[in-house]
């Protein structure tokens, strides 16, 4: 049974107003338990609007969103939904507000009404999951940490709720290369070791090609493609979509194919590109 089921979802901002904008238009999509789903699309294509439906922050104007078997439009069940789906917004470190790391990460569990022992266990557990040592960091004020560390603390705050589904909106934006790698490894580990279902929005096709099991592509509020990274790459016109640019190694392969070189454009990973060029160069030199 899918964890997330989106059926013919439509959503309009400011309906009836002069700036009315149809942000989502007939989107149908499902995410299986334990799956890593990537979402790509240009600025303004509806990515963030879509994921805000996953924990009931937004309710559909048309269609249905069913999370773990529950319809998100049933208001009485909203509390349960928030426990099941953890949403990490863009720049989540801007939401840190408590005086110490411990207090911030434990904010969720405290509001679940858990006992002090359980709160401590969950908080320390969440900090360990994001690769932080509770003993050394718990009592520090978040403000004195670097951007990458603050972001991990913010993610720990969501993990402390022990969500079944983790939804992340551009989790690596604005981070340096080391910070990016750390966050990406952490997300992949959560999927593989904890079997957490992951939905991740990213502008970096390269990140999603290496991490995601499936990728969904949005354009102007419509779902224009879904499938494995390879399937999506081969979908006709995918690369012509606004806001989508291939990683440079794939640009190279496609440009070479365009110049009449015999290369397999059906690849998605950098290592495959390396093998293709290796073969091509050997062929050229062998002649």
């Amino acid at each position: 049974m899918p964890v997330i089921e989106v059926k013919d979802l439509s959503y309009t901002y400011c309906p009836g107003a002069p700036y009315e904008k149809k942000a989502l238009d007939g989107v149908t999509l499902s995410v299986k338990r334990g799956e890593f789903m990537g979402i790509v699309g240009a600025n303004g294509s509806g990515k963030s609007t879509l994921i805000q439906h996953f924990n009931g922050l937004l309710c559909p104007d048309g269609g249905k969103v069913i999370i773990c078997g529950q319809d998100t439009s049933v208001k009485q069940r909203r509390d349960e939904l928030w426990k099941k789906v953890g949403l990490v917004f863009q720049y989540p470190e801007q939401q840190l507000f408590e005086a110490t790391v411990f207090e911030d990460v434990s904010y969720g569990p405290r509001n679940l009404g858990l006992g002090p022992r359980e709160i401590r266990i969950r908080t320390e557990d969440a900090l360990k999951k994001v690769g932080l040592e509770p003993e050394s960091i718990a009592d520090l004020p978040p403000i004195c940490l670097s951007g990458g560390l603050r972001r991990r603390v913010a993610i720990a705050g969501v993990l402390a709720m022990q969500p079944e589904v983790l939804v992340l909106d551009e989790p690596t934006a604005g981070l340096d290369p080391l910070g990016r790698d750390m966050i990406l490894n952490l997300i992949k580990k959560l999927q593989q070791e904890d079997r957490t279902t992951i939905v991740m929005v990213s502008h970096s096709l390269r990140e999603l090609l290496t991490l995601a099991d499936r990728i969904a592509v949005l354009e102007n509020g419509k779902l224009v493609a879904t499938g494995s990274p390879k399937e999506v790459l081969h979908q006709k016109d995918f690369l012509a979509l606004p806001g989508i640019i291939m990683p440079d190694y794939l640009q190279l392969i496609h440009a070479l194919a365009g110049r009449g070189k015999k290369v397999n454009t059906g690849i998605s990973a950098m290592a495959e590109a390396e093998l293709e060029i290796d073969r091509l160069l050997k062929e050229i030199c062998g002649k």
Partner: peptide, 13 residues
Amino acid sequence: DEPTSMLDPGGKY
């Protein structure tokens, strides 16, 4: 100062 960090790849290019 990091003008591209909020842009999609098309906007960045």
